[in-house]
Design a protein around this nucleic acid. Sequence first.
DNA 1: CGTTACGTTCAGTATTGATTGAACGATTGT
DNA 2: ACAATCGTTCAATCAATACTGAACGTAACG
Lengths: 157, 157
Amino acid sequence: MSDSHDAVTAFIERMGLSAQNDGLPRIAGRMIGYFIIHGGPTSLADLARSLQVSRASVSTNARFLRDLGILEATAVPGDRQDYYQLVDRHYMRLLEGHVERMGTMSASLAQAERELPAGMDGARERLEDMHDFIDIARDHTRDLIERLAARRNKRHD
Amino acid sequence: MSDSHDAVTAFIERMGLSAQNDGLPRIAGRMIGYFIIHGGPTSLADLARSLQVSRASVSTNARFLRDLGILEATAVPGDRQDYYQLVDRHYMRLLEGHVERMGTMSASLAQAERELPAGMDGARERLEDMHDFIDIARDHTRDLIERLAARRNKRHD
DNA sequence: CGTTACGTTCAGTATTGATTGAACGATTGT
DNA sequence: ACAATCGTTCAATCAATACTGAACGTAACG
């Protein structure tokens, strides 16, 4: 079983790294990795033991991932611990987050266009150009999300 | 001109914030904002003065953005300062970076599938499911990049 | 030459944010 | 009632990294 252990921990660690790389807390990434491998539902205490981190960190990051819509709480009959698991198609939330960030960027560009005094034509053109781009990219990503949702539904029906 | 100044600095500051939000250095974001507004080419010294930051920071971040393919150096005849400007369609580089990160994630999942010992069927299924998703999303984003490139070319021809 | 302005590098500082330990309330089982 | 376990919160610590100041090399220009 040491083979499995090595491969599994290596993967979980890579998930931590790439989360860090994306600006997310490392432990959050490792938690996602844990759930991809082990499924769940799992209590926060077990998670803390498995990942060798403090219960405080697990608690904080669980809430963080829950707010992101990546984790959800489930009840286990006969046990009143808080059990968590990945939401179905959790990875979609990443794309949705991407769409959200493009939305704020779009709004920021729109505000700049609105407030920019007349005469700065070069600036306005560049703002509008980038704005168009962002909006198209956002729409495109929305389509992607829909298409992926459809694909998964078809598989399951 | 105080109106223009307010709107402009507010926009540049927002760009800094949203860069920070994406895990990039704040000054890098502000530099991008500066170029969107003022066009360029601009010397690093002017940039440092405008953004009120040290020349060291500007130098470091300019190299950073150049390596990302967002800024490029241009020669200004009769002046041998280093002039920088945004590359054409600089925002495309953001999507390309996104594609790259999806690529490393895909590779990481593939490696996990390869090294995972037999018997962990649930884990394998979840890995493959996510792997499929990532690859589809990456292809889709590549299409988007191509389509946007085509759109821009048509505009210009 | 001497001066000035530029860009880079690097050691040091400052700041941000992740992680922890300890204290707490709640819940269960004895 | 008591002990044990869980999850949360918060102050404190720790680590990563953004940012700066100073020193340096280069090039222009008087």
